[in-house]
Lab assay of single mutants.
Amino acid sequence: SDPSEDRAPESARVGNIPSSTSALKVPQLKVAESAQGPAAAHTTDTAGYNAMEESVSREKPELTASTERVNKRMSMVVSGLTPEEFMLVYKFARKHHITLTNLITEETTHVVMKTDAEFVCERTLKYFLGIAGGKWVVSYFWVTQSIKERKMLNEHDFEVRGDVVNGRNHQGPKRARESQDRKIFRGLEICCYGPFTNMPTDQLEWMVQLCGASVVKELSSFTLGTGVHPIVVVQPDAWTEDNGFHAIGQMCEAPVVTREWVLDSVALYQCQELDTYLIPQIPHSHY
């Protein structure tokens, strides 16, 4: 159930021909089969995070001529859309010479989310990475209204306002976009420790780096000194050995919190207090 199309920051360009055919990675995205229709094609874990990302398996898109002007500035990904909605975005992107990729990268400028009429969405990996990267996180209605009015409308009017977990109007995407000089995790050293489900560890690490944190791979690698705040992030329900995560405190002095601390902080683009996310640790033995 991992969102495989989000696994690594590679891009698939639509609308320009790469210098070599080997560089072309066409979105071959799968549809989750469901008797209840597209709305039930998501699996949500206890964290309220949509693990099964969206989309559609299609034939290789038709490439435009390399001489045609390509908008190098805009690059989009989509999240939560049905196959039909994805194809509408594809046509919109081609019309406006926008790069459409299946994986979010540093070059991505827009994340197009499936939302309700009030621009509230589910939480997906692309949603988190879009906010963390200060990108435009907009409703699919931006595409449909632009098509209806036959011009590209202003993104401000379609920015995602909230999500089904953290609140319907928290304005996290807007706050992140306007606060890239004040990253929420700066001054923190974060170790993403142990197993994680539904989200590859490297993507979680990239997320906290985008928010200004330094990533530490091992508990023994924390910088011990003033001005640096170490934090260990774990996902308790992913551990097979009972309560192993309670013993992390015996290996390092850092506070240990659940992954929800990261996800909530990123969604709201406000660093949350650790208290409600802390995992009790077995104290050091004193002999």
Rank of each mutant, 00 (worst) to 15 (best):
E53Y: 09
G37A: 09
G167R: 01
G37I: 08
T115G: 00
N166S: 04
D45C: 13
E253C: 12
L268W: 13
G249S: 12
K151L: 11
T258E: 05
V143A: 07
S22F: 08
L103S: 08
G244R: 09
Q145T: 12
E178T: 06
T82L: 05
Q145L: 05
F86P: 02
H42G: 08
G134K: 13
A8M: 10
E33I: 06
E253M: 11
W261A: 01
V257R: 01
H229P: 13
Q250A: 13
A39I: 14
V26C: 03
T101D: 08
R161Y: 06
C192S: 05
W206A: 09
M74K: 09
E59F: 10
C192M: 02
D237N: 12
A254M: 11
V14C: 14
F222R: 09
K91S: 09
T108K: 00
A35I: 06
P9I: 06
E122Y: 10
A213L: 02
M76I: 15
R58A: 09
V165D: 02
L129I: 12
T105L: 07
V137Q: 00
V228T: 08
V89L: 07
I184T: 03
E54L: 10
F141H: 02
F185L: 11
I147S: 09
P9K: 11
E155I: 12
T64G: 03
I248K: 15
H97F: 10
F119M: 15
N169I: 07
A93P: 01
M52A: 04
F119C: 03
E122G: 02
G37C: 08
F245P: 13
L100Q: 04
G244C: 11
G133I: 04
F119V: 02
V138Y: 00
R123S: 01
A39P: 12
V160S: 00
D237V: 15
E149L: 11
E178P: 01
V143L: 04
A93N: 06
K91I: 12
V138T: 06
T21P: 15
C271S: 10
T64A: 07
N243P: 03
I147Q: 09
V14M: 04
W261K: 01
I184V: 11
R58K: 09
T99R: 15
C191V: 11
V232K: 04
R161T: 10
R259G: 02
T44H: 12
Q36W: 15
K114A: 10
R13T: 15
I248T: 09
S79N: 02
T226A: 15
V78N: 12
I104N: 07
P83S: 13
E260Y: 13
S1I: 06
R94K: 06
V208A: 13
S214R: 10
R7P: 06
E84S: 15
I279V: 12
N102L: 03
Q28R: 10
H246L: 12
Q28P: 07
E205K: 05
N102E: 15
L88S: 02
Q250T: 13
K114T: 03
S20A: 04
A41G: 05
Q171H: 07
P83A: 07
H110P: 01
S34N: 06
R13E: 08
P18Y: 06
E107S: 05
Q281T: 12
W261Y: 03
D2A: 07
